[in-house]
Design a protein around this nucleic acid. Structure first.
Length: 363
DNA sequence: AACGAGTGAAGATACCAGCG
DNA sequence: CGCTGGTATCTTCACTCGTT
């Protein structure tokens, strides 16, 4: 679960730049990353888009720093080693990252709107990262939002902090930290004890609310589940690419079942929007993705991650396939080329590590 | 038009790991 | 131990926007 957030870090799009800054694999401090991010973003303008008053923009070095912190929380950055984290590596394996690599290299053709808006593959990528790294808090928030349909930011904050937050903390914190849970369980009582509205707004507890709850709703906006409807108001996005019932299901699963569902039944509605990939498309894409992943993971290419990333790569090519057909495809090629395509066992619960000898592979 | 609630930005303070 | 640089958290400021 993501413990550190700041009220102003509510745009996921910016985060895509950060893995690109770490591509050379040498360790970089937060401040360095923040400074570079700030400099890059500062040079990007877009009058038309600015007229819509987007929120969460990086306007000062301090915002940039807060985004770097979020990148670490989402495991785009490996905090300990100051290098790429799992999701940072995975993002760099997406074709969508190319735009941001060239931005980092000095390309000036991107506009602000390009820095903030996510394409469909990226929306799913960030949902994936969020549901992993902000588990189980994001699930409670998401299902509340879907059930509610329309709501104001204030009530969302109250729910998030006085119900979802303590519940989520209770689920993930060890017994030794039960004091923090108990404290969170008293949030409501303490808020009600402050009679005066002005006092409440000034209280440190309210500050905490503002920093923890709102960004999460904004992330759901960026992922296309919610949309803002005026100042401080949200509603479920009627044009979303997902199915609300399936979002509820996703929000009810335990952590180890999320990948299977997110890249399985959850993506069914996208079959209406994208061309169904054939066997050849699937395998060709699988091999391409494997090649990219090999660069960051070496011999440790997790088969489940490879298959999920293949779906995202297909979506980037305007195609779609489900996890089962990708898995079947991998297996049948593994039978056909047993010496060049195989799986070695890895940590329990996962499928294993994939190996593909891609040299001169005739498909 | 005036007011107050809501909001994002930024400053201030607290905290903490790692090191000599 | 105590210092330091880096990070986390809290408070306040300043402005915006919706309401009446």
């Amino acid at each position: 679960m993501i413990m550190e957030t700041h009220g102003d870090i509510c745009r996921l799009g910016y985060l895509r730049i950060i893995p690109c800054l770490l591509e050379d694999q040498s360790p970089k401090t937060y401040d360095f990353l923040a400074a570079v991010l700030y400099e890059i973003v500062k040079g990007v303008h877009d009058e038309d888009f600015l007229a819509e008053k987007p929120i969460g923009l990086i306007t000062r070095p301090v915002n940039a720093r807060n985004y770097v912190t979020l990148a670490a929380e989402l495991d785009l950055i490996d905090r300990r080693r100051q290098r790429l984290g799992l999701f940072g590596k995975l993002y760099l394996c997406m074709k969508s990252s190319m735009r941001f690599r060239s931005l980092v290299e000095g390309d000036r053709s991107l506009r602000l709107i390009d820095l903030l808006m996510l394409n469909d593959a990226e929306k799913i990528f960030f949902l994936w990262a969020l549901f992993h790294r902000d588990y189980p808090f994001i699930q409670l928030i998401t299902s509340w939002a879907i059930r509610k349909g329309r709501f104001r930011r204030q009530e969302a904050m109250i729910y998030a902090m006085e119900e979802a937050y303590p519940q989520a903390l209770k689920k993930i914190l060890p017994r030794s930290r039960s004091r923090e849970v108990e404290e969170a369980e008293r949030f409501r009582e303490r808020r009600l004890a402050i009679g005066d509205k002005v006092e409440w707004i000034k209280s440190s507890q309210y500050a905490k609310y503002r920093h923890i709850a709102p960004p999460r709703f904004e992330w759901l906006v960026d992922c296309g589940i919610l949309k803002r409807s005026g100042r401080g108001k949200y509603e479920v996005n009627a044009q979303m690419i997902y199915d609300p019932q399936r979002i509820l299901k996703l929000a009810s699963l335990s952590l180890n079942k999320i990948d299977q569902y997110l890249f399985g039944d959850f993506l069914k509605p996208l079959f209406k929007l994208y061309r169904r990939a054939g066997r050849y498309d699937i395998f060709r894409t699988l091999v391409e993705v494997y090649d990219r992943m090999k660069r960051y993971f070496g011999e440790e290419v997790d088969l489940t991650n490879l298959e999920c990333m293949t779906i995202l790569a297909l979506i980037e090519k305007d195609m779609i396939a489900d996890l089962n057909s990708i898995h079947d495809s991998f297996n049948s090629f593994a039978i056909q080329f047993p010496d060049r395509i195989y799986v070695t066992p890895s940590a329990s619960g996962r499928l294993g590590l994939a190996y593909i000898d891609t040299r001169n592979l005739e498909i």
